[in-house]
């Protein structure tokens, strides 16, 4: 299962990763090799096998709905590269 360069660029864009042309070429080869290794899974008949998303039994435990303090804004913002008052500052999304 060989990926094309265009596919590599498309995945990188979906994953929000800027790649250099050298990285695009290298990842194309490496990811293709990994996917080729994974292709053997297609040989396994799983028509009657349910998927495992978690090894835990599915359950929806409830806890008492008690108010408790959350993270104060100054602590939540303390690691941000740019803040404005009590908000994270980001480049404009809409012009």
């Amino acid at each position: 299962m060989a990926l094309t360069l265009d596919e590599v660029r498309h995945i990188a864009r979906l994953a929000r990763l800027r790649l250099s042309p050298e990285e695009e070429a290298r990842f194309r080869q490496q990811l293709s090799a990994i996917l080729e290794h994974a292709a053997r899974l297609a040989q396994i008949d799983t028509a009657s096998i349910p998927p495992t998303a978690t090894v835990l039994p599915l359950r929806a435990p409830l806890r008492p709905d008690q108010p408790r303090p959350g993270l104060p804004a100054d602590q939540a913002l303390a690691n941000a590269p740019a803040v404005d008052g009590t908000m994270f500052r980001i480049p404009p999304v809409f012009e």
Binding site: I11, L19, F27, A38, T46, I49, P51, T52
Partner: peptide, 28 residues
């Protein structure tokens, strides 16, 4: 970066069933 790309691909439309869903079944 490699693993993010691999995961993004395995979860992307058109490939989800062949890769991610099949892997979850073989996990069983």
């Amino acid at each position: 970066k490699r693993r993010i790309m691999l995961g993004t691909y395995a979860l992307s439309a058109g490939y989800y069933d062949a890769y991610y869903a099949q892997a979850q079944k073989v996990r069983t």
